[in-house]
Amino acid sequence: MLSETATATVRATLPAVGAAVEDITALFYEKLFAAHPELLRDLFNRGNQAAGTQRQALAGSIAGFATYLVERPDERPDAMLSRIAHKHASLGVTSGQYKVVHQHLFEAIAEVLGDVVTPEVAAAWDEVYWLMAGALIAIENRLYAEHGVLKGDTWRDWEVAGRTEETADVATFRLRPADGGSVPVHKPGQYVSVQVELPDGARQIRQYSISCAPGSPLRTIAVKRIGDGEVSQHLHAHVREGSRLRVSASYGDLVLEDDDAPLLLASAGIGCTPIVSMLEHLAAAGHTAPVTVVHADRSPATHPLRTDHGLLVEKLATASGHFFYEQPGPGHPACRTGLVDLSGVDVLAGTRAYLCGPLPFMRAVREQLLAKGVPAADIHYEVFGPDLWMAA
Score class of each variant (00 low, 15 high):
T9Q: 13
T9D: 13
L14N: 11
L14Q: 14
A19F: 01
A20M: 02
A20C: 01
E22Q: 13
I24W: 05
T25H: 03
L27E: 15
K31S: 10
P37Q: 01
A50R: 15
A57Y: 04
A57I: 05
A63H: 02
A63V: 15
L69A: 12
E71M: 00
P73C: 11
P73A: 07
L81D: 11
H86Y: 04
K87L: 03
H88C: 06
H88K: 05
L91F: 12
G96M: 10
Q97M: 15
V100P: 11
Q103W: 03
I109Y: 00
I109N: 05
I109C: 03
A110M: 02
G114Q: 08
V121C: 07
V121H: 07
V128D: 12
W130P: 12
A133D: 00
A133P: 04
A135E: 14
L136C: 13
L136F: 12
I137K: 11
E140W: 07
R142I: 01
L143K: 10
L150D: 15
D153V: 05
D157A: 07
W158M: 04
E159N: 05
E159D: 10
V160D: 13
A161G: 11
R163F: 02
T164M: 04
T167K: 04
D169A: 04
D169N: 10
A171M: 07
P177M: 03
A178G: 04
D179E: 08
D179I: 04
G180E: 13
G181C: 09
S182C: 01
V183D: 04
V183R: 05
H186A: 12
H186R: 05
K187E: 15
Q190W: 09
E197C: 04
L198R: 07
P199K: 05
G201S: 12
Q204I: 03
G215C: 06
P217E: 12
R219C: 06
R219H: 00
I221T: 14
E230L: 15
V231I: 13
H234R: 11
A237N: 14
H238S: 06
R244A: 02
L245W: 01
R246G: 03
S248R: 03
Y251W: 10
L256K: 05
L263R: 15
A268C: 09
A268K: 02
I270L: 09
C272G: 14
P274M: 08
S277Q: 11
A283T: 06
A285T: 14
G286P: 10
G286F: 04
V293H: 06
R298V: 15
P300N: 01
H303W: 01
H309S: 13
L311S: 13
L312R: 00
K315I: 00
L316Y: 03
T318W: 00
S320P: 03
S320W: 01
G321D: 11
G321A: 14
F323C: 07
P328D: 09
P333Q: 07
A334H: 11
C335K: 04
R336Q: 15
L342P: 10
V345D: 14
V345A: 13
D346S: 09
G350R: 02
T351Y: 09
R352N: 11
A353P: 08
C356A: 14
L359R: 12
L359P: 04
M362H: 08
A364P: 10
V365A: 12
Q368P: 05
L370I: 08
A371Q: 14
K372M: 03
K372L: 06
G373M: 12
Y381H: 15
F384Q: 15
L388K: 12
A391K: 04
A392R: 12
